[in-house]
């Protein structure tokens, strides 16, 4: 194993996910592969030498030298506006990774899985869902995905396509679709009830969301060491 180098990454495709988020498909020659749930660091360098970097979760499982990131626009951000509004197909950035060996799901594991995502925290969870399908895994998966409003959901068409053994529940915190049973509001213990404590849980989202969801799971009897968390800070962008 060697220390992580920065690699040239060429943007080869763009998919619009919501009004403010896009999936960026990069081709990275020499990419060593990655596990579902891992992230990468993206570095931008200005002509005067100033550089800045941000971490983004990979949205899809390993597939040759192809790496997909879903990036949400952060108003006043430094990196995301460039990636979403300036970078064009054929342009290059630098990417280092994959990094993180903790918040990962391995397809050989058959244990039931609970995925709890808040906002763009769904991205590494989607990589796990896609890895499960790609591997033909029959591990039972349950996704609980919290967003402010219905049109802020990523991957809506793909998640609407039923996959055996994958159960999906949406939580809307500000506005629901018409006729929705659950009143808008933040995640509660009731949203997570009924999941066997023998489940492996992955919780990803803003820090407050992750704290709340993990606390609810522990209160419901889940062992802390079966709950893996990844927090997005306020300093992203």
């Amino acid at each position: 194993m060697r220390r992580l180098p920065w690699r040239a990454a060429k943007l080869t495709g763009i998919r619009q996910e919501t009004a403010t988020a896009r999936t960026l498909v990069f081709t990275i020659p020499g990419w060593p592969g990655h596990l579902a749930g891992q992230h990468v660091d993206v570095r931008l360098t200005a002509p005067d030498g100033y550089s800045t970097e941000r971490s983004y979760s990979v949205a899809a499982p390993e597939r040759g030298d192809r790496v997909e990131l879903t990036v949400e626009l952060v108003e006043d951000g430094e990196v995301s506006p460039y990636l979403l509004e300036v970078l064009e197909v054929g342009d290059e950035v630098e990417i280092r990774g994959p990094v993180g060996g903790w918040f990962v799901w391995r397809p050989e594991r058959a244990t039931p899985v609970l995925l709890v995502g808040g906002g763009s925290g769904v991205v590494p969870l989607m990589a796990m869902i896609r890895a499960r399908r790609a591997a033909g895994s029959s591990a039972p998966f349950r996704l609980i995905y919290s967003v402010r409003e219905p049109d802020q959901r990523f991957y809506l068409d793909e998640l609407a396509d039923p996959q055996p053994g994958l159960d999906i529940t949406y939580i809307f915190t500000r506005k629901t679709p018409d006729g929705w049973d659950r009143a808008p509001g933040r995640i509660t213990a009731a949203d997570l009830d009924g999941v066997s404590p023998g489940t492996d849980s992955y919780v990803c989202g803003p820090t407050g969301f992750v704290e709340a969801a993990a606390d609810h799971l522990i209160a419901l009897g889940h062992a802390p060491d079966r709950i893996r968390t990844e927090r997005f800070g306020p300093t992203g962008g």
Binding site: R3, L4, H39, V40, D41, E53, S55, R96, G97, V99, G100, G101, W102, F103, T207, G208, E211, T229, E230, R231, F232, G233, P234, T235
Partner: peptide, 16 residues
């Protein structure tokens, strides 16, 4: 409460 978690150390520690 404005913190990240140790996953954010993976890149910087991977450098060394």
């Amino acid at each position: 409460i404005d913190y990240l978690d140790g996953n954010a150390l993976a890149g910087p520690l991977g450098e060394i």
